[in-house]
Amino acid sequence: MKQYILPALRLTVICIVVFCVVYPTIIWAIAKAAPGQGKGETIQKNGKVIGYEKLGQSFTEDRYFNSRPSAVAYNAAGSAGSNKGPSNPDYLKEVQARIDTFLVHNPDVKTSQIPVELVTASGSGLDPHLSPKGAKIQIARIAKIRNVSSEKLTQLVDQYTEKPFMGPEVVHILKLNIALDEL
């Protein structure tokens, strides 16, 4: 037995050195050269951090482009999806309620125009994006409240639409709303 225990102990120690000290230190040092220095890229306004570039925020007020429903209310101390199954009757009622609420806040919109992401929670609860459709459908409401022309808002949404290589087209809602405040 001894012939197996000693190598096991020694190998464990050296693996801890290589994979828990050397390897993370290399990555940590490389991260210093990356945007955000490995601390996460922030978005600042007047020298104050108002958000993390990768993380979505809760936008529920009518004067902002609303973000998707979230199981953790966009508090990035944690992260989770709703984990509701497709047949769960309570869940289906909740989705119906979200549709109804959306229609109350956006009276010009027809049910068939509401994109599904606006009434379903994301996997992380921190999804920073909407589809261009999901943003544009909110333009009429925001234009009315803010007294801005719809054309201008459409332009703004187009400007903040990202088209990654082969990936889905998305709009970054935090950046879009910050730009909206600056109009």
Binding site: R68, G81, S82, N83, K84, P86, Y91, P115, V116, E117, T120, A121, S122, G123, S124, D127, P128, H129, L130, S131, P164, G167, P168, V170
Partner: peptide, 11 residues
């Protein structure tokens, strides 16, 4: 039209 989005990320 974008599919089953519950529990999925837009990006």
């Amino acid at each position: 039209s974008s599919g089953a989005m519950e529990g999925k990320e837009m990006r």
